[in-house]
């Protein structure tokens, strides 16, 4: 890793104390290639992309708009076809979309004719058909409460603000108990202060189950605060993984402590240099 070259030596020790040491690989992307046919010929968005993520790891992917990070995410989600290479989750190649790779979309995409509870319930019914009605209800209420909507179960999706809708989106994804949680710039549409609130909410729910998570974002501070590892993608065409940065901050993470950490701005500078350079 390039981190150790540029930072203090005591950081090297932190890197070794990697909490995920020994964890099995959950998500494996090998030789990924994505081609879009256009009028002027084939446009190769991604080529020769390799990515391995271990179980319980939280990865954030940063890069410029249009570099293909969303494309990669939708390919892992199964909503986008793969032109070459293979994506394996938990040892098996993926086939189409599924709740094992739950997605939190950029726009909440709640069904506006349903209430918050019903939106989560529709997913719960799909993955827990063997559960009793009471259990299903408990699952929905548990996650909605965790994201801070304990009083808003029966509000129609249209009566909730953008931030609250996105909370339901998070609850809906977690309630599916996915193997991999995929987040596609989930807070991009929110103002930077609501974004902070929702980042805390996300970590709060994630903390319990430590689901393998991949989050695409363009906000450098967000990626440092949330992730164990920040993956930097080069710009398209022919985009691939450019660089990696391990974030050794201990969990659970407190925002002020993270901001005050002596190396915070070094990490931040490293990422900004990558984006600007």
């Amino acid at each position: 890793m390039h981190v150790a070259e540029k930072l203090d030596t005591d950081l090297k020790e932190l890197v070794v104390k990697d909490r995920l040491q020994g964890a099995p690989v959950m998500l494996e992307c090998s030789d990924i290639k994505k081609v879009y046919p256009t009028k002027k010929g084939d446009y190769v968005v991604l080529e020769d992309l390799q990515l391995n993520i271990r179980e319980g790891e939280f990865i954030s992917i940063i890069g410029h708009s249009g570099c293909g990070k969303s494309t990669l995410l939708t390919m892992i989600a199964g909503l986008n076809g793969i032109s070459g290479g293979q994506i394996m989750v938990d040892g098996a190649p993926i086939r189409g979309a599924g709740p094992d790779r739950a997605v939190v979309f950029q726009s909440p995409s709640l069904f506006p004719w349903l209430t918050a509870l019903q939106n989560v319930m529709i997913g719960v019914k799909q993955v827990f058909p063997h559960a009793s009605k009471k259990q299903k209800l408990e699952i929905c209420k548990y996650y909605l409460n965790k994201v801070g909507l304990g009083n808003d179960f029966d509000k129609k999706a249209t009566e909730l603000s953008q931030g609250m809708q996105q909370r339901v989106g998070i609850a809906r994804a977690f309630a599916l108990k996915p193997k991999v949680l995929l987040l596609d710039e989930p807070f991009g549409m929110l103002d930077s202060l609501t974004r902070g609130e929702l980042q805390d909410v996300l970590l709060e729910v994630w903390q319990r189950e430590k689901i393998t998570a991949v989050m695409v974002t363009h906000d450098v501070d967000e990626s440092i605060f949330l992730a164990d590892r920040v993956i930097m993608m080069t710009s398209g065409p022919y985009a691939k993984i450019g660089d990696e940065l391990i974030i050794p901050f201990e969990r659970p993470r407190n925002r002020i402590d993270v901001l005050e950490h002596p190396n915070y701005y070094d990490y931040r500078g490293y990422l900004i240099d990558f984006l600007e350079g």
């Binding site: 599924g98 709740p99 094992d100 799909q126 993955v127 827990f128 058909p129 063997h130 559960a131 259990q135 408990e138 699952i139 209420k141 548990y142 409460n145 599916l176 108990k177 996915p178």
Partner: peptide, 12 residues
């Protein structure tokens, strides 16, 4: 506080 039932999800 709500309790989370301990169930394994099924691929639908």
């Amino acid at each position: 506080e709500y309790l989370l039932p301990d169930l394994k999800p099924v691929m639908p």
